[in-house]
Amino acid sequence: MSTTVWIILAAAVVTYLTRIGGHVLLSRFQRIHPRVEAGLDAVPAAVLTTLVAPAAAGGGPIEWATLAVAGLVALRGGLTATFFAGAATLIVLRNVL
């Protein structure tokens, strides 16, 4: 097998370990401390923010306008509406400006 395939298989193994690891480690404890609980509750917003903020900082006016539109739509609409509003804004602005 090529080196590439070996890298892919190794990547698959370590990725699976990240997916099951948190649960395997945490399930050893019977009771969860309130601070740990609060930390875990913060996980989705914290992680997802790191996938947005640097991309926003690295973007220009078009990308900022896109995120602003998406953010505003998100206050009223659901995820699908938010995504398509943002995507439409981005595509229009990039092709017009």
Binding site: A38, D41, A42, P44, A45, A46, V47, L48, T49, T50, L51, V52, A53, A55, A56, G59, E63, T66, L67, A70, G71, A74, L75, L79, T82, F83, G86, A87, L90
Partner: peptide, 27 residues
């Protein structure tokens, strides 16, 4: 830039959670 839009929508979806704003700001 499609994924950042999508992830922003998801971040906004969690805005009802306790400590949402400080967590998002810090991250």
């Amino acid at each position: 830039f499609m994924l950042p839009i999508y992830f922003l929508g998801m971040v906004m979806g969690f805005r009802g959670r306790p400590l949402w704003l400080p967590v998002v700001g810090a991250s």
